[in-house]
């Protein structure tokens, strides 16, 4: 299978959030700091990859009629494992993301990939699909977090980076981030629910603009090539 194509699909042309427009609840809810965004993105990436591999491994032995129920059980299993591990070893992330970790179960990305991709493809392809789709999701979360945090609070890397005693990474979510400008001048509204909807809306609009532009370019190029051919003839 062509990994390169899958990579491009996951990150750009078939990005789960920007193009397929699924899994938006968490995208808008938790992207208020880089710490949350990165944590959520990586959690989804891990769960998605594991589920993809398991689903495609058992795809031939599960009966057609109850496949969705089985997918849900497998997904819920992995989500609970990640939830328990986070509670035990990165409690700050667990409390910051709260109910959105168990809610990955109903995140349409995972069940959607299981149904649309893993059912028909080999374990290897599903593994890469999980990684790239997960990366695509993580990238969107990162962009949203960085934009909302920077414009809303004037910091970069909140919770994850601490610069008071030299640059270091904090896994307990205590770092204040790099201060770009004083939080008093930040558009605080961007860190509120309003900002979640608005940022995602604008991000998808930018994506649509870019996709349309590249499609038009291709069209023009094809047209030009065709005309050239006609002239030659």
């Amino acid at each position: 299978m062509n990994i390169k194509k899958q990579f491009k699909e996951g990150l750009i042309t078939n990005n789960p959030v920007l193009v397929q427009q699924i899994g938006m609840c968490a995208t808008m809810a938790i992207t208020t700091s880089l710490f949350n965004g990165l944590g959520m993105g990586l959690s989804v990436l891990i769960i998605l990859t594991c589920c993809n591999v398991v689903v495609s491994a058992i795809r031939k032995i599960i009966p057609e009629e109850i496949r969705l129920a089985i997918f849900v059980v497998v997904i819920a299993g992995f989500v609970t494992i990640v939830d328990l591990l986070l509670q035990a070893f990165i409690p700050a992330l667990s409390s910051a993301l709260g109910v959105f970790i168990p809610l990955i179960v109903v995140n349409c990305i995972i069940i959607g990939r299981a149904e649309a991709f893993c059912q028909k493809n080999t374990v290897g392809a599903s593994f890469f699909d999980g990684i790239f789709q997960g990366l695509g999701y993580t990238c969107v979360l990162l962009i949203m977090s960085i934009v909302r945090e920077l414009l809303g609070k004037g910091t970069f890397g909140g919770g994850l980076i601490d610069v008071t005693e030299g640059l270091r990474f904090t896994l307990d979510g205590s770092g204040a981030g790099i201060k770009i400008f004083s939080g008093e001048y930040g558009a605080k509204i961007l860190t509120m629910p309003f900002g979640g909807f608005l940022t995602l809306g604008v991000l998808i609009a930018v994506m649509q603009y870019a996709l349309k532009k590249s499609a038009r370019k291709k069209e023009l190029a094809a047209k030009a090539a065709k005309e050239e051919k006609e002239v030659e003839e």
Binding site: G195, G201, V202, I204, A205, V206, Q208, K212
Partner: peptide, 23 residues
Amino acid sequence: YPECFEGFPICLVSAALVALAFM
């Protein structure tokens, strides 16, 4: 509205404004 906002984006932007009202 601008063409690139067609579909989901404009929907999200209007949802943002309703969310603002709920604030």
